[in-house]
């Protein structure tokens, strides 16, 4: 079957998955576009992994339907779905060598031995593990196992590739390197990737679009910049990056309305008392309660006059640690552009 590009790769129609009384996934509607890098982002227990498992076929919806390129797959077993998964623990077969692991899907499809060897070599080259075919998974590092798992899934040319927190077990450096590599591989093979993660930075780095999950529901779907700059709910504002949420009395004092709004810490300018600002700016005074020097930047906690506090992040462009630490306890003026405030319907 050829994929009509206008048909969504995956479509959820009011999909729910209940475990007893727990609504792990609650009436989720979702469309994932052909060829995109789509991330499901959320804290643990938010339902993102359950959604992925339902696409793979390891779990079935309690109600609702899941479509793969227009075909209802809700009740098909995993082996009849044209999707493949990269598992969180890699799930490499310990009794087979790397080559046999990668060739597994082809072996099941009874592809000839010669063809298998050829395609395994190609795949191992794609993931930069040329010459590793004879090794056992136990002889590989975490990052290498990760690549084998990726090769084993991609060799089958699935319509959709599912990745369940695949970088979770890697250290920071390797994770950042793999993020770029994964993105490149996705562009190269042109397959729709669905990536589950709880790491917002990872989601923002790699994705074309992100769905933010919370308590079995999707809070917001959008591009990384939309999610970051225009969070649709207090949850998204708090979960993706750091946000100052200002509501009620404080909001009224600052903004003239008790509508909740959020302002990102890096958008706030920390200036000296009495500094003049334009009419397109909001200004207020406060006292620096706490300073955390983080090398690249410094994080300040400022008590606002009249109640409440704000987190402010300033890059250490011209300041040294001595400079920033001496600000603690001083009175300062905070200011930001009105356009950076995002009002949020709670």
């Amino acid at each position: 079957m050829t994929n009509n590009p206008s048909t969504p790769a995956i479509r959820f129609n009011k999909v729910s998955r209940h475990f007893g009384d727990v609504k792990a996934v609650d009436e989720v509607d979702l469309e994932i576009i052909n060829g995109e890098f789509f991330s499901m982002l959320g804290p643990s227990g938010s339902g993102k992994t359950t959604c992925l498992r339902m696409i793979a076929g390891f779990d079935r919806p309690t109600s609702g339907s899941i479509y793969l390129y227009g075909q209802d797959v809700s009740n098909l077993p995993p082996y009849e779905r044209d999707v493949n998964t990269v598992f969180q623990d890699y799930a490499l077969f310990p009794h087979m060598n790397v080559g046999d692991n990668v060739a597994y899907g082809l072996m099941i499809k009874k592809v000839s031995k010669a063809e298998r060897t050829k395609r395994v070599d190609e795949m191992l080259e794609l993931v930069q593990l040329k010459g590793f075919a004879g090794r056992k998974p136990s002889q590989l590092s975490g990052g290498q196992r990760q690549r084998v798992a990726l090769a084993r899934a991609l060799i089958n040319h699935p319509k959709v590739l599912l990745l369940d927190e695949p970088l979770g077990a890697l250290d920071l450096k390797l994770r950042q390197q793999m993020q770029i590599e994964l993105k490149n591989i996705q562009k190269q093979v042109g397959i729709t990737f669905i990536f589950v993660t709880h790491d917002q930075e990872e989601a923002i780095t790699m994705s074309d679009r992100i769905a933010v999950f919370n308590q079995g529901k999707i809070e917001q779907i959008g591009s990384p910049s939309q999610i970051y700059e225009r969070p649709a709910s207090t949850f998204v504002a708090g979960f993706v990056g750091t946000s100052n949420l200002i509501q009620g009395e404080a909001a009224k004092r600052i903004n003239g309305s008790d509508q909740t709004f959020s302002i990102r810490p890096e958008k706030i300018h920390l200036g000296s008392l009495g500094e003049k600002n334009g009419s397109d700016m909001i200004s207020l005074d406060g006292v620096v309660r706490d300073v955390v020097y983080l090398g690249l930047y410094t994080r300040y906690l400022v008590d606002i006059d009249g109640g409440g506090d704000l987190i402010v992040i300033q890059q250490n462009l011209k300041t040294t640690s001595m400079d920033v630490l001496s600000i603690k306890g001083q009175k300062v003026r905070l200011s930001w552009h009105k356009e950076h405030m995002v009002s949020i319907g709670v």
């Binding site: 793979a56 076929g57 995993p78 082996y79 969180q88 799930a91 899907g105 099941i108 499809k109 899934a153």
Partner: peptide, 14 residues
């Protein structure tokens, strides 16, 4: 591990 059984099914094995 249960994930090995799932992986096998995922890769097309009945």
């Amino acid at each position: 591990p249960g994930s090995l059984v799932e992986a096998s099914g995922d890769l097309g094995a009945k």
